[in-house]
Design a protein around this nucleic acid. Structure first.
Lengths: 232, 232
DNA sequence: TTCAAAAAGTGAACAGTGTTCACAAAAATA
DNA sequence: TATTTTTGTGAACACTGTTCACTTTTTGAA
């Protein structure tokens, strides 16, 4: 097998990886510009001067190739958020930075972000995934994103900023929904009024605005208990 | 032209509409079950015992047919929200009902809701839509949905429930983002932990939970002004 | 009622798509 | 050097949306 190249890559494998990367690079370019419908195996093969069937020596299907594009994007997204999260010291700043970075990275590659959440599971798939352990979930990149949020909520609660009556899991889910929705709304409905338009980066300031509102929703409530049936 | 049938439909038109409705009904069924990729003109034609080319006597393209499915769904969605909005008297109840109805209706037809927000506009389209008047926008069904939210925010502010320092447009956008995100998260990521699982309708109670958090984010802030740089 | 015009419906074809598979060329291994 | 494995290809299959010349049916008026 790996006779002479004990741990390194044999020239054959390096060459193979080169072709694989070329495929991915071309696919990335086409997908970023025109989305899934614009990424065709045949056009892709044309672009890199190979036959369409050659692609299948590197990827089992178009689906598999797309999966790799989406996964690497989401990991990049996660990296960005992790980075800014480590940068800020103040809790409010860090939380805000996480949200704005998440949304900015998402909207910077609209097709990638939208595609990362595009599959609608069938009832059968749903039944299978129902029996999924928490460990298996946070092993996925989506699960890691969720865990970041849970940690953030717990930290906010420890600091007395967030309401300790809230379940961290629920709160995290709520935050994610709010961020996810804003990102997709900006991607799919850029018509929505941009109250303080900034020509170079429209909606940029609104993201921080939204982030503040979301955080206010988790803050310790005012003195009036009212009839807020929170968390039974 | 309409010689004998002054305002009513001529038998020919009624028959034509019948076929048109049959096409739409079959398309609706297929799309609801399998989504856009599962809806093929040829299978559709097969289903209603017509030739594929016959479809094009009723719809200019598959895109046009899909557009009609999506539009009628979103109008139904809007109707549902309008109905429950008129039903509740108490402001909190009404706001909560709007959110839960919106999300429930969306998740009840996942493919429809997701498809209603699926198009990613190209830079050219984006430039065109930038010059869109507010009147033209609220004439669309999406615009009406947005207007409902703006009105709701203003009412909440008038009642002293919501912070009057908030721009109603921004607040409405923030609410919509949070609802939109929750609906899509439930559609595309049903794996997310369902803390209090309800076997018959999972996630049902979480929607109300999320709605309360969202409303808390718009509530009048606590006495501590802190350094919240809200609305400049 | 007859007749031209309009509408409805069809089969065949075009240009695409993802994917498979037998086969040829090249490279790596023995 | 001979053999096996890898890499790449062209042709074909089974689809897709769409068009168009064509026939059949229906309609409205002379």
């Amino acid at each position: 097998m790996d006779s002479d190249y004990p741990l390194e890559q044999t020239p054959a494998r390096r060459r193979r990886n080169k072709v694989r990367e070329a495929i991915l690079a071309a696919a990335e370019r086409m997908f970023a510009k025109e989305g899934e419908s614009g990424l065709s195996i045949r056009r892709l093969a044309e672009e890199i001067d190979y036959s369409p069937s050659a692609i299948y020596k590197y990827f089992g299907s178009k689906e598999e190739l797309l999966e790799e594009l989406k996964d690497s994007f989401f990991e990049r997204l996660l990296d960005q958020v992790d980075r800014v999260s480590a940068a800020s010291r103040d809790f409010h700043d860090r939380a805000r930075a996480c949200v704005t970075t998440y949304v900015s990275t998402a909207t910077a590659r609209p097709h990638h972000y939208a595609a990362a959440f595009s599959s609608v599971p069938t009832p059968e798939e749903l039944a299978v995934r129902q029996h999924l352990s928490w460990e298996d979930f946070i092993a996925t990149s989506k699960g890691q994103a969720f865990k970041i949020l849970v940690d953030l909520v717990e930290e906010g609660q420890a600091l007395g900023v967030f309401d300790t009556a809230l379940d961290p899991l629920k709160a995290a889910k709520s935050i994610w929904a709010s961020c996810h929705g804003l990102a997709l709304l900006m991607i799919h409905m850029p018509i929505l009024p941009d109250v303080q338009p900034c020509p170079t980066q429209p909606d940029r300031d609104f993201v921080a605005y939204h982030a503040d509102i979301v955080m206010r929703g988790l803050a310790v409530p005012a003195e009036t208990p009212h009839k807020n049936g929170q968390d039974s």
